[in-house]
């Protein structure tokens, strides 16, 4: 599965970059996120409940950030294990460009999914992933914008 999108966030680039590394913001923005903690310099562990079509599962996963050229560009990779429901692993390259009144965030993500998730949800995965990403960025943008104006 591949996902390539961009989204405008009405906040300065530095702020956006920092927020992307802020467990509080991430926990509040990730749909279905139950737990999220920073386990190392650039490492996070999370528990997220996801529903894709008929498969609902609690995924335990880790994400590692690779700050290649902060705050313009970084990449990340991660994996999640949903037990009997299956597993997912993937990565993304994220670029942040300054624009009038905010930041343009572009990402290019790839993911491999396996198990029941892939079998039952294969038709739905792309659409669901798109929807979840949109949801994430909508609440992420809200958060960041609020904090910036505050």
């Amino acid at each position: 599965m591949e996902l390539k999108e961009d989204v405008f966030i009405p906040a300065p680039r530095e702020r956006v970059y920092d927020a992307l590394n802020d467990p509080e913001v991430l926990r509040a923005s990730i749909p279905g996120c139950e737990e999220l903690e920073k386990t190392g310099e650039n490492e996070f562990a999370a528990k997220v409940t996801l529903k894709i079509g008929p498969v609902k599962a609690r995924f335990a996963g880790t994400v590692t950030l690779h700050p290649e050229a902060p705050p313009e560009k970084f990449s990340l990779d991660g994996q999640g294990n949903g037990g009997a429901a299956g597993f997912a692993k993937g990565g993304a390259v994220v670029t942040l460009d300054e624009e009038d009144g905010g930041t343009r965030l572009s990402y290019d993500a790839r993911a491999e999914i396996g198990g029941k998730l892939a079998q039952l949800g294969s038709r739905l995965v792309q659409g669901t992933a798109k929807k979840l990403a949109a949801k994430f960025f909508a609440s992420f943008a809200d958060h960041v914008a609020q904090e910036t104006s505050a």
Binding site: E112, I113, G114, G115, A118, Q119, L120, S122
Partner: peptide
């Protein structure tokens, strides 16, 4: 099967 060995036709939908 896909390249990581998922059965792509595991239900009567497919």
């Amino acid at each position: 099967y896909d390249k990581i060995g998922n059965v792509k036709t595991g239900t009567l939908m497919d």
